[in-house]
């Protein structure tokens, strides 16, 4: 990436008009809504947004109201990246033919974990392979929330959802979270990063970096959902912090495949004693409550084990001890 790093102050951000407006119907404590507000603070000029079906689409576009102060398109659940392809192709050729102004227009595709890890993955992979110039923003609330908390490929091991309930025989979701950002890096993308809304400056900076890439960029943002996680709505941002502090959701970026921890996670690599146990993050979330029962002790240990293992793997990728 050659572009100079964008510098901004809190005041700049506060003064910048919102493109994702208030008045939407998101629940109290909805981190995805906070994420979108922050993401749209990072735009650098005219921007078209296309969004997959899911909570954020539904809460922001109930006709005849809209929360979008920028052109916005929704078509279906699995189509965010395909839409972005079409929008980008149209802008390119219409500019070339002189039908619209030559001014650059950024394209952001937004989808939840369902619209990204699962049903939208093919379209995403195809659009990235074709090299369209767009930023794909995944807000990851770790389940299909819009339809009532069903498991997705992004739901973590052990979590109870309505299609992976914690029952007497099966203690929540048995499968592990798909390492999606790594899959995107395997597409040879110029810019892939993860972010968490607690570290909002880091998040905004990464959005801007993604937009500056001439080609596809991918940003995976952690986004707690108090309804789906059965957690206190006042604590969504706190969980965004804890997920990073426990290394459940490390924040990093990979420029041309070179992994680099971002400061909040980098600190933990330098001072491992500050890394918190996963239980600090899991406790208080209803979706993990069953894991604290004595009979599920192994499950809790397994979550710690897989978290440590993935963290070690990440450190290696970052050339850190």
């Amino acid at each position: 990436m050659t572009a100079k790093e964008w510098k901004f102050t809190s005041k700049d951000i506060a003064n910048k008009p919102d493109l994702f407006l208030s008045g939407h119907r998101a629940c109290a404590g909805c981190a995805p809504a906070t994420v979108l507000k922050l993401v749209m603070k990072a735009t650098r000029g005219p921007t078209i947004v296309t969004e997959a079906t899911g909570c954020m689409e539904v809460v922001s576009s109930i006709y005849p109201y809209t929360s979008w102060a920028t052109p916005w398109l929704h078509t279906a659940f699995e189509t965010a990246a395909a839409n972005a392809s079409g929008i980008e192709a149209a802008l390119k050729i219409m500019k070339k033919k002189g039908r619209i102004s030559k001014e650059h227009v950024d394209v952001i595709a937004i989808a939840g974990d369902g619209g990204t890890f699962d049903i939208g993955l093919q379209a995403l992979s195809g659009a990235v392979e074709r090299g369209h110039d767009f930023l794909f923003l995944l807000y990851d609330n770790e389940a299909y929330m819009n339809t009532g908390i069903q498991r997705s490929g992004g739901t973590p091991h052990g979590a109870a959802t309505t299609t992976s309930p914690a029952g007497r025989a099966v203690p929540g979701k048995l499968e592990y979270k798909k390492p999606l950002a790594d899959i995107m890096i395997a597409h040879d993308m110029e810019y892939v990063a993860t972010a968490s809304p607690y570290y909002w400056r880091d998040l905004i900076t990464k959005v801007r970096k993604g937009l500056e890439v001439e080609g596809p960029a991918f940003l995976h943002v952690f986004a707690p959902c108090p309804r789906g996680w059965r957690s206190n709505p006042a604590k969504s941002i706190e969980y965004s912090k804890l997920a990073v502090e426990t290394c459940v959701f490390p924040v990093w970026e990979a420029v041309n495949g070179e992994y680099k921890l971002s400061i909040p996670s980098k600190v933990l690599s330098l001072a491992p004693q500050r890394k918190k146990p996963v239980s600090d993050y899991l406790k208080g979330q209803g979706r993990f409550r069953h894991m604290f029962k004595p009979e599920n002790k192994a499950l809790l240990e397994e979550v710690q084990r897989i978290t440590d293992k993935r963290w070690q793997k990440l450190l290696k990728k970052c050339n850190l001890p």
Binding site: I62, Y63, H74
Partner: peptide, 14 residues
């Protein structure tokens, strides 16, 4: 979809 005249397309209508 025109950045000069933002429009919400493909909304949810109940």
């Amino acid at each position: 979809l025109d950045p000069k005249n933002p429009m919400t397309m493909g909304p949810i209508a109940l």
